[in-house]
Design a protein around this nucleic acid. Structure first.
Length: 410
RNA sequence: GCGGGUAUCGUCAAGUGGUUAAGACCUCGGAUUGUGGUUCCGAUAUGCGUGGGUUCGAGUCCCACUACCCGCCCCA
C-alpha cells in the first residue's frame, strides 16, 4: 500500500515553490520595512489557549481543532494551532513584553491546522502570513496594519482588491447592538434558517452574514435594516472609526464600509476588516483582521490594545501571477567529473548558480540538457584541461569563446 | 456535518461488454564516440483509485469504500 499525503494537505515543490518563496520573501521585506519583527511560535499549544482566546462560540473551536493527548497517559490535551493570534499573544504575555515601550510589532509566516472539509481555497494544513501590533489604542495603529496588508499585496502586483472595513464597537456597544438586533429579529425567529436559530442565541451578529436567501431577505426588511445601518456605536468608538477612515483616505487606500462584516472570531472589537478577491470562488477572503483590545487581558496579561490580520497563503498563491522558472548561470559540459566538480565549486564560491552532468554522458546529451536549463555552457574537455583554458558558449546566441581563467568568466 | 461531480502512465487524455488498453507531451536511449534548442527512429501501464459482484468475457455494468473537485457551512 502506497502512503499518500493526508487529506487536505499537499506538497509544495517544482513549479509552485518559486512563487511561494516570492510570497514569503516579499512579506519579510515589506513588513520589516514597517518595523514588524518576525516571530516564530510553536505549532501546538495548550488547548485552553484557543478555547479561551478564539472563543467558545466560534466554529473553529467547536468543531475544527486538531486536539489530542500527546501521550496516552497525558492529563491535558494540546491543539495544533488553528490560527496564530492566540499564540503570539501568549508569547507576548509570557515574555513580559508588556513592560517594553509600545508598540510591539510582529509578523509571522507558518502552517495552521483546521479539520474541515477540503475545498477550493481551503485545506486542513494551510499557511498564514500575518501581523500583530500591540500597545496602541489609537486608530493610527489600525491604519498602519491595513497599510502593511495593502503594501504587501501591492508588492505581489495585487492592486485592485476590495478592502472592506467595519466597526463592531467596544464590548459595551457590542452588547447593546446585540440586544437591539435580537429585539428586532424576535418576530422573525421562526422564519430564520436552523443555523441562524442557533446563532440567535449564541452569536446573533453572525446572522448578518448568513448566506441563506430567506435570511438575507428578512434582513432586507425596513425595520431591521434601520437597526443595522444606524450608528449604534458609542461616540468614542465612532471617533476611532472616523479617524481610521481619515487615515485611509490620506493614504489613498480604497475601501468600502460593510455594515454586515462581523467575522467569526470572538476576540474582535472596534475595527474589523477583510480584503477580498473576485477571482477566488466561494472562499473569497484572502485577508481578515481587526482590533482585539480585550484579548491580552482575557489571556491573563495586562490590559493591552492590539490589532492585526492574517492572510491565507494558498489563496494568495491562486490569484498571483506565477513566477517563471529562471535559467541557471552555467552548465558545465565535461567528460571529467572530477574537474567539473572542482570548477562548479569555484564558480559557486563566486556566487554563480552552477550545475553539470554527473554521469559522464555524451556531449550531445550534456548540451541538450544545458540548453534546457542554463544561460551558458562551459566546455571542460580533454583539450581544455590539458591546455588550461575554458570554452564558454552562450546558449542563446550559440557563440563560443575561449577564456584563460575563471575570473574572465565572471 | 450535508448535497452534487470525477477517478485510465509523471502530465493531458482516447476508450460506449469482445483479441495484445489509442494518441500527445515529458523522460530515457539511438541516428550524431567533443557541441544543444530542428528532424527521424525506438523504449516506457501484465494495468484502468481500492475491494467485492454480474458475465463465457469487465477500463466499460452493479454494490461498497477511498481520494480529489465543486457547492453549503465556516474562514484565511
Amino acid at each position: 500500500m502506497v502512503i499518500k499525503a493526508q487529506r487536505g494537505t499537499k506538497d509544495v515543490f517544482g513549479d509552485e515553490i518559486k512563487t511561494w518563496q516570492k510570497i514569503e520573501k516579499n512579506a519579510r521585506e515589506v513588513f520589516s520595512k514597517a518595523c514588524f519583527e518576525e516571530i516564530k511560535t510553536p505549532v501546538f499549544e495548550a488547548t485552553e489557549l484557543f478555547s479561551r482566546g478564539v472563543g467558545e462560540s466560534s466554529d473553529i473551536v467547536n468543531k475544527e481543532m486538531y486536539t489530542f493527548y500527546p501521550k496516552f497517559d497525558s492529563k491535558e490535551t494540546i491543539t495544533l494551532r488553528p490560527e496564530n493570534t492566540a499564540g503570539v499573544v501568549r508569547a507576548y504575555i509570557e515574555h513580559n513584553m508588556t513592560r517594553q515601550s509600545p508598540p510591539q510589532k510582529f509578523f509571522y509566516f507558518g502552517p495552521m491546522f483546521r479539520y474541515e472539509r477540503p475545498q477550493a481555497g481551503r485545506q486542513r494544513q494551510f499557511y498564514q502570513v500575518g501581523i500583530e501590533m500591540f500597545g496602541i489604542k489609537e486608530a493610527s495603529a489600525d491604519a498602519e496594519v491595513i497599510l502593511a496588508a495593502v503594501e504587501f499585496l501591492k508588492s505581489l502586483n495585487l492592486n485592485n482588491l476590495k478592502v472592506e472595513i467595519n466597526s463592531l464597537g467596544c464590548p459595551k456597544c457590542k452588547d447593546d447592538y446585540r440586544a437591539s438586533i435580537k429585539e428586532v429579529l424576535k418576530p422573525y425567529l421562526n422564519e430564520l434558517c436552523d443555523e441562524c436559530k442557533v446563532r440567535y442565541i449564541k452569536n446573533p451578529l453572525r446572522i448578518l452574514d448568513c448566506k441563506n436567501e430567506n435570511c438575507k431577505k428578512i434582513l432586507e426588511s425596513k425595520e431591521i435594516k434601520e437597526v443595522i445601518y444606524k450608528d449604534y456605536i458609542c461616540n468614542e468608538c465612532k471617533e476611532h472609526f472616523d479617524a481610521l477612515k481619515k487615515y485611509l483616505d490620506e493614504l489613498n487606500i480604497n475601501y468600502c464600509i460593510n455594515k454586515l462584516l462581523v467575522r467569526g472570531l470572538d476576540y474582535y472589537s472596534r475595527t474589523v476588516f477583510e480584503i477580498k478577491s473576485d477571482a477566488l470562488g466561494s472562499q473569497n477572503a484572502i485577508c481578515g483582521g481587526g482590533r482585539y483590545d480585550g484579548l491580552v487581558e482575557m489571556l491573563g496579561g495586562n490590559p493591552t490594545p492590539a490589532v492585526g490580520f492574517a492572510m491565507g497563503v494558498e489563496r494568495l498563491y491562486s490569484i498571483i501571477k506565477k513566477e517563471q522558472p529562471s535559467k541557471i548561470d552555467y552548465f558545465i559540459v565535461s567528460n571529467n567529473t572530477k574537474e567539473a566538480l572542482k570548477l562548479a565549486q569555484k564558480l559557486r564560491q563566486k556566487g554563480k548558480i552552477v550545475d553539470f552532468d554527473y554521469q559522464n554522458r555524451k556531449f550531445a546529451k550534456q548540451f541538450e540538457k544545458a540548453a534546457k536549463v542554463a544561460k551558458n555552457a562551459i566546455v571542460l574537455g580533454e583539450d581544455e584541461i590539458n591546455q588550461e583554458y575554458y570554452s564558454i558558449k552562450d546558449l542563446n546566441s550559440g557563440l563560443q569563446t575561449r577564456v584563460n581563467s575563471i575570473d574572465d568568466l565572471i
